[in-house]
Design a protein around this nucleic acid. Structure first.
Lengths: 346, 346
DNA sequence: CTGTTAGCGCATTCAA
DNA sequence: TTGAATGCGCTAACAG
């Protein structure tokens, strides 16, 4: 039971040449049905599973694809992984997920080592690795095919899939303006992610079109996490003239805003509207559920994988986003906001 | 730049035998410092990276470990992966994460194929794959070392790491009882996960010790997700004599309870206490933050990986849990709960 | 459509 | 402490 059969054992049992077995394994066109059946029967009987290592060593392609990422949002990465995974599975490829640290100065080295060691046929890059020059240069020097998922810059430079972050942020801001808001706070995303800049641009564009002046005190930096959302919200709510709505560049930060609002007894959305971005599961789990932008993450991953496996031509695809309306946004009240902080338990 | 150097190139440049390079690569003890330095210099100069495939094919072990999982909680899996990943990285191993479907009748076949194809040296199983007989039998038949993370049953049967789910649920229930609660609703976890049974046992044990009769209408099934938490909460709150506290078997379901409470204007924790389990990031992001059990997920993953790499002896380790107190629990009010459902927007 | 042979890059015998 | 030969399991030419 523990002994592993190899391709020669299969060939012997089926009474054919080794090469014929190899052809069956690789779905080679010129194999007669009779041969194929004999071989397949032998493979089943011997419980044969081809060694990836041997195929890599002997062949020109490995059937392996790497997904390189440095994203600390479990939800987002889960979707990316599953999207890539399903597509790879359907194509009979193995996916190797590889976390890295974009801040590491030796990241180029690391990626090169990993790519060479594993003999992957191609690489999928997830933001913000998509915009890491060291990695891009390394892959190009190795002449390794790669696709970028939601790169922050130079979409057209390499194959990539992405959504229109500027337009999406514009849509959300416009949605808030249409609800009657004039003072809309904005929390910027993590600076490593170039999408953060795009989202800010969309916010500005919508304000400008509506003839609302940009107010520096209504824009706070953030890091795509809960705590930075809370920090920004604290600042906004303590302003002499606080915003009636806050648009955070992702759902985690929007959740932070909600937590602060709850602590200060500011009713959402009656006194303060809140919007997120990404439509992670968070958006539906917090209270009230967040109006947010659905980024087609899984589709992006799936499409990226397809592009990688495609003809190798330079291709970039834009996938549509969607504004998801939930209960966190309402028309603004005119009444002034007063803060009454809840005492913390424990 | 694109040509890859092999071990012979390195040997030639360093002026040593191929075998010497191999020894350096594998940290073999008997190599003189001078030799080692020459070889390392050559490796750097040639930008040499050993082919995993070749090492696998020629050697007896592959330096690869598989993590097999079927868990749909992104938070949980993220921590598991990172725990395994860091440890593997420290030991110079490659981690291959492999999602599977425990409901698939051919899962045994799939796992065998995957294990044989990749030549992994060992396997880490995450719940509920830990309790999938087909997988366990396959691995044993292959004589493949494996460790289970939080198996639901037979801890001692194979190497495994886990926490005491019974005790943890007992702790939480006792905590609620000590706060004055007598009618405590309980939401069971997904039936695929055997930890669900343990958590229910702990709940029952605490009630019994406190002399509180088990009430069938205070125990609802769940599936570890937000929606089943909501469904259970709806039932509880519409009971003639609703509970003053609800203990959900994980944070996702507890979040569902909070959402329902908010919709019905039931103040938490003033009118209803809520507890979760797992201490995912959810627990801190929802309002009010959840009192919950911190499962040392990352430590479990790390420890599991260590056990796998250890001497191969059968070993099982229990790691300590922790009850995290946050604002979702307070002493119960005597006043009766009345429901006033909020009209849904949109 | 099918078979024969060489060799991918490394670790593993053995021998020195 | 170092080196020379053999082969892991498979695919790629080339031949039939």
């Amino acid at each position: 039971m523990g002994e592993r059969a190899n391709i020669r054992d299969v060939a012997a049992l089926a009474g054919v040449a080794v090469k014929t077995v190899s052809r069956v394994l690789n779905d080679h066109p010129y194999v007669s049905t009779k041969m194929r059946e004999k071989v397949e029967a032998a493979m089943t009987e011997l419980n044969f599973h081809p060694s990836v290592a041997a195929r890599v060593l002997a062949g020109t392609k490995s059937g392996q694809v790497a997904l390189i990422y440095d994203n600390h949002s479990p939800h987002y990465m889960h979707q990316i992984m599953m999207g890539c995974w399903d597509r790879c599975n359907a194509e009979g490829l193995r996916l190797i997920a590889q976390p890295v640290d974009v801040a590491d100065p030796k990241i180029g080295e690391q990626v090169r080592g990993m790519v060479r060691e594993t003999h992957v046929d191609g690489v999928i890059l997830s933001s913000p690795v998509t915009d890491c020059a060291a990695v891009l240069n390394t892959l190009e020097a190795l002449n390794m095919p790669f696709v970028r998922i939601s790169p922050g810059t130079n979409h057209a430079l390499t194959s990539s899939v992405f959504m229109d972050d500027v337009q999406a942020a514009d849509d959300m801001t416009t949605h808030m303006i249409n609800a009657g808001h004039r003072r809309i706070g904005f929390i910027i995303g993590h600076e490593n992610h170039l999408a953060s800049k795009d989202r800010l641009s969309g916010y500005c564009r919508a304000l400008e079109r509506a003839g609302i002046a940009y107010a520096a005190d209504l824009v706070e930096p953030g890091e795509f996490d809960f705590d930075s959302g809370k920090a920004a919200a604290e600042k906004f709510l303590n302003l002499p003239n606080p915003p009636t709505a806050i648009f955070a560049s992702n759902d985690d930060m929007a959740s932070g805003v909600l937590a602060v609002a709850h602590r200060y007894h500011v009713p959402v959305p009656e006194m303060l509207s809140v919007a997120g971005f990404d439509d992670t599961t968070l958006a539906q789990v917090v209270w009230p559920p967040l109006t947010t932008i659905r980024q087609p993450v899984r589709d992006l991953a799936d499409t990226a994988t397809q592009l990688l496996l495609g003809d190798g031509g330079l291709e970039h695809r834009r996938l549509p986003h969607e504004l998801i309306t939930r209960e966190s946004i309402a028309a603004p009240r005119t009444k002034m906001l007063t803060l009454r902080k809840k005492t913390e338990n424990q």
